[in-house]
Design a protein around this nucleic acid. Structure first.
Length: 475
DNA sequence: ATGTCC
C-alpha cells in the first residue's frame, strides 16, 4: 500500500520529533506521496523539517510547515515534574527481586498522581511500571501501568473426573488439546472455524474509528492463545481439604488451566493510548513510559472503555477454549475460577477512591480467588486473597523469570529440558527452551514470600502443556 | 506480547 515505505522511525531519523507533528507528517505522506520514490520523499520531508518557512505557500505542505513553525515557537515548559522524594512502598520477597524493578517502582512512586504502591515477589523490569508492580493513582490511568497485553489472565476449570481417566485416555486429551487451541503471534482462525461471542457485538467497537478497525481481527483471534509465556494445559488439581466456598470435597481432579490475554486487539489499544498519553502527559525521560491520562478527560474515558473491552475479550477467549475442551472430553464442571493480572480497577484503598494498576499481579482482596501458575513442570496454586492493604490487595502472578529468554536458550540444553519434563511426567506440545522450568524462579520460594497476601486453596500440577512453537532460530 | 507504521 505504501510505495515509498516510509514510516515514523524514518521521519524521526531525519529530524522530526515524537508527537502530533509526526502524526501529521505521516498523514501527508499517506495522502499525497504514496507513489513518489523513497529518496525524493525523504529529501522533501527533511527540507520541510529544517526550513519550514520555505513551504508556507506549498499546496501540499503548507499546513505541515505552519504546524512545525508553531510548534517550534510554543512554550516548552509543559513537562510535568516528578516529586523529589519517592513515596514509600512495600516489597514482598525483596531477595528475589532485581534492582531494576525496584528502581522503576521508585520512579513510579514520584508521580504526582501516585497514592500508594507495592512490589510482588515475582517482580522484574518492564516498560514503565515493572512487571509485578501495583500502583494506586488518584483519578488517573497509566496505559503502561496496565501493560501491552491488556486483560492477560488465568482461567481454571475443575472437572468431576478422576485422575485415572486422564492417565488412561491421554491420547484423547492430547488430540483435543491440539484440535481446539491456536498459538502463535498473529495467528487466528480461518473464517469457517471462527467462534462466536457476544463480546464482538459490544458498542465500544463503534466508539471510535480506531477501535472499529480492530473488530474483524478480534473476531478471527477469538479463542486463540498467542505466544510467549501463554499456555493451555491439562493437569491434576489437589484439594488437601474440602473447600466450602467452591463446594468441592478433598481429592484429586482433572483440571484445565489457561494463560493468555487480549491478542492483537489489546496490544493495538495499548500502543495507541500509550502514544496518546505520551503526547498529552510529558514526563521526565526516566518516567516517560508512565505517561498517564486524566480519568475526567475524554482520552482517559476512551482508554478506560477500550481497556475494559479488551479485558472482556480476553475473558471470552478463555471461555471459548474452556467450553470447547469441556465438551470435547465430556466433563462435568465442578468449578471455574479466573482472574486478570494485567489490568486497572476502580477500588478503595485506605478509605480513598483510587485507580489500582496491577501489571503482572493477581488481585487478592479478602476472599477473592485467583490462580498463580508455577512453570510447565512446577505446580501452580489456586489461592484466596487475604486483603492486605499494605500489598494493595494483590499477590504475584507467577514465579517470575530468573533468566532472560536469550540467556535460557544459551544455557539450557535440549537434553536438560527433556529430562525435567520426563522427571515430572509432563507431555509438552510446542514451546522453546526460553520457557523451560529452569528459566523461572522457584515457585515455592515465591509463595513463601507472600504468605501474608494469600492462602493456598489447592495445588495444580501440569501434565500436558501446549504453548506456541519455538520461535528461536537457535539449535 | 504483538506482528511487517512512531
Amino acid at each position: 500500500m505504501h510505495m515509498n515505505r516510509i514510516n515514523g522511525n524514518d521521519l524521526l531519523t531525519i529530524g522530526f520529533n515524537q508527537g502530533k507533528i509526526l502524526g501529521l507528517a505521516l498523514e501527508v505522506l499517506e495522502k499525497n506521496y504514496q507513489d513518489t520514490d523513497r529518496e525524493t520523499v525523504l529529501t522533501i520531508m527533511k527540507n520541510v523539517a529544517e526550513k519550514p518557512e520555505l513551504y508556507l505557500d506549498h499546496e501540499i505542505l503548507e499546513d505541515l510547515a505552519t504546524k512545525i513553525i508553531e510548534d517550534a515557537n510554543a512554550p516548552k515548559d509543559d513537562t510535568i515534574s516528578l516529586n523529589e522524594t519517592a513515596m514509600p512502598f512495600n516489597i514482598y520477597g525483596q531477595e528475589h527481586i532485581d534492582e531494576g524493578a525496584v528502581r522503576q517502582m521508585d520512579t513510579a512512586m514520584r508521580l504526582p498522581v501516585t497514592v500508594a504502591g507495592a512490589l510482588m515477589p515475582d517482580a522484574h523490569q518492564g516498560y514503565g511500571l515493572p512487571i509485578g508492580g501495583v500502583l494506586a493513582a488518584k483519578n488517573a490511568v497509566i496505559p503502561y501501568g496496565v501493560g501491552v497485553d491488556i486483560g492477560c489472565r488465568m482461567a481454571l476449570s475443575v472437572f468431576d473426573i478422576p485422575e485415572s481417566h486422564f492417565v488412561n485416555n491421554a491420547d484423547i486429551y492430547k488430540r483435543e488439546l491440539i484440535d481446539h487451541t491456536r498459538f502463535g503471534a498473529g495467528h487466528g482462525f480461518v473464517r469457517h472455524q471462527r467462534a462466536e461471542h457476544a463480546v464482538l457485538e459490544r458498542n465500544e467497537f463503534n466508539m471510535t474509528q480506531f477501535i472499529k478497525t480492530l473488530q474483524d481481527k478480534a473476531w478471527s483471534q477469538l479463542g486463540t492463545s498467542g505466544g510467549g509465556n501463554h499456555f493451555v494445559e491439562w493437569g491434576i488439581i489437589e484439594f488437601a481439604e474440602r473447600d466450602e466456598v467452591l463446594n468441592i470435597p478433598a481429592g484429586r481432579y482433572v483440571a484445565l488451566l489457561s494463560h493468555s490475554g487480549s491478542r492483537g486487539l489489546g496490544a493495538t489499544i495499548a500502543g495507541h493510548y500509550t502514544r496518546l498519553a505520551k503526547d498529552i502527559c510529558k514526563l521526565p525521560k526516566e518516567a516517560s513510559n508512565l505517561a498517564y491520562l486524566d480519568m475526567n478527560s475524554s482520552e482517559g474515558q476512551e482508554y478506560w472503555l477500550a481497556m475494559n473491552l479488551a479485558g472482556d475479550y480476553a475473558s471470552a477467549c478463555h471461555e471459548i477454549i474452556h467450553n470447547k475442551l469441556t465438551k470435547a472430553i465430556g466433563g462435568q464442571l465442578l468449578a471455574r475460577v479466573e482472574n486478570h493480572h494485567n489490568f486497572a480497577w476502580k477500588e478503595t484503598w485506605n478509605g480513598e477512591d483510587v485507580i489500582v494498576h496491577r501489571k503482572g499481579a493477581t488481585p487478592a482482596g479478602k476472599g477473592v480467588m485467583g490462580i498463580i501458575p508455577g512453570s510447565m513442570t512446577a505446580p501452580g496454586f489456586l489461592v484466596r486473597g487475604k486483603g492486605l492493604e499494605d500489598a494493595i490487595n494483590s499477590a504475584s502472578h507467577g514465579a517470575g523469570r530468573q533468566m532472560s529468554r536469550t540467556q535460557a536458550i544459551k544455557s539450557i540444553s535440549h537434553q536438560e529440558m527433556d529430562a525435567i519434563l520426563k522427571a515430572n511426567g509432563v507431555t509438552l506440545i510446542g514451546a522453546g527452551r526460553d520457557e523451560a522450568p529452569m528459566a523461572y524462579k522457584d515457585i515455592n520460594m515465591v509463595m513463601d514470600a507472600q504468605k501474608k497476601l494469600v492462602d493456598v486453596v489447592a495445588k495444580f500440577s501440569p501434565k500436558m502443556v501446549r504453548m506456541a512453537d519455538d520461535g528461536s532460530k537457535e539449535d
